[in-house]
Design a protein around this nucleic acid. Structure first.
Lengths: 214, 214
DNA sequence: ACCTGAACACCGTTCAAGT
DNA sequence: ACCTGAACACCGTTCAAGT
């Protein structure tokens, strides 16, 4: 927007990434263009190419930055660490839904993906879960969290505003079950369901871990 | 590609949707443009606007068509119907990964989303699962399937080709757990894990349903 | 080291028009 | 009813250049 004044400190990759995150959070992924982004930074489009190879390199950096917001606690019991890790990841998805789904569709694995997997395995190891079961536990939990987050974003849990009117508008003959279940669908509290599911899965993992300390 | 010859039958929405699905499956979502799509149909770009309001209306139709590939069996036991429904949905995601993730990031709910939810609730009702537990069962299963499918596509399960070399390339000091678990990570069979998780969840639902027939 | 202008090959879409 | 050309406001990116 504002043109940069003369003796200003040079741009940094971090500034660009932050501005891009802001832009996508506010206006959606399809509004992210090199030209618009440059404009919000008070710079000409080509300047961005000094910091990033191309648009996909910028996207890579944005995705990594967002996933890196997932906080990895390490000062708690193994099961509480898993809980906070999962809640933190869901929080990331809620704060940056557009970037989160982009991360899920992104072909490459970003460094933060490894950091998250490492944190899961670390907590599971701290709980003396043997390696094969730890891998399965990681799969179970990451599937649950990303599925829940994605379904929330996509509206598949029918917990968004306006679900009631949307369900009421459906033809009863074609969707008798949705009609019959509509009060339970709209009554569902996503936070509560998340905690419920999370605890059930962690209990399951706890039940099958070896009880002896490693 | 080929220009349309004179007395040809007019285009249909279905033809356009099929061509668009093909294009996205082959070349990815970012290669879908009205101009390229028109070209593959031997028609000028503006012709498409006779059939679809704009690009997002076309995308809506593509997403609905893909999700509608999810087959809804109705001639089996309630639990087998749930199994086949979940497998079918995962199959859709594997056949059309780019469109599937687009569906998960699409703001609107498409008709096929309702059809799938209806099918889940119908099978659960057939199993005499009471309405509140049926809604929770639907949430649990849809979360599992979409999470699993998305994680497979995003590579978060580390079951894709080249995982071994990718893990070996990671610095051991920063990722000791990934290093320690690498053989179990790469040995995991996604089909088997999907079936395992699916059965566990359906067993759980079966255990809490009321045994009496409604 | 950091930033830019001009140019090229794209893109979605409006509007008025052709058959 | 079905399809189009011309035009407009965009877009990513290359390349050569400015300080």
């Amino acid at each position: 927007m504002m043109p940069r004044t003369k003796g200003q400190a040079p741009l940094t990759r971090e500034q660009i990434i932050r501005a891009a995150m802001q832009l996508v959070d506010d206006e959606g992924m399809e509004k992210l263009s090199m030209r618009r982004l440059a404009d919000t930074l008070g710079v000409k489009p080509m300047t961005l190419y000094y910091y990033f190879e191309d648009k996909s390199a910028l996207l890579y950096a944005i995705i990594d930055a967002v996933l890196a917001e997932c906080v990895v606690a390490s000062e708690d019991s193994w099961d509480n660490r898993l809980r906070s890790l999962c809640r933190s990841l869901r929080g990331v998805a809620r704060r940056h839904p557009a970037i989160f789904v982009a991360a899920m569709s992104y072909e490459q694995t970003v460094p933060a993906d490894f950091a998250i997997a490492e944190a899961f395995l670390d907590a599971l190891s701290a709980g003396a879960v043997p390696p094969d079961k730890a891998v399965r536990g990681y799969h179970t939990l990451i599937t649950f969290v990303t599925g829940f987050a994605v379904d929330e974003i996509a509206g598949l849990l029918f917990t968004f505003d306006g679900t009631q009117t949307m369900l009421d508008a459906l033809p009863t003959e074609r969707f008798p079950q949705l009609h019959r279940h509509r009060q339970y669908l709209t009554a569902a509290d996503p936070d509560q369901e998340f905690e419920y599911g999370l605890n059930a899965l962690i209990d399951g993992i706890g039940a099958e871990r070896q009880e002896q300390n490693s």
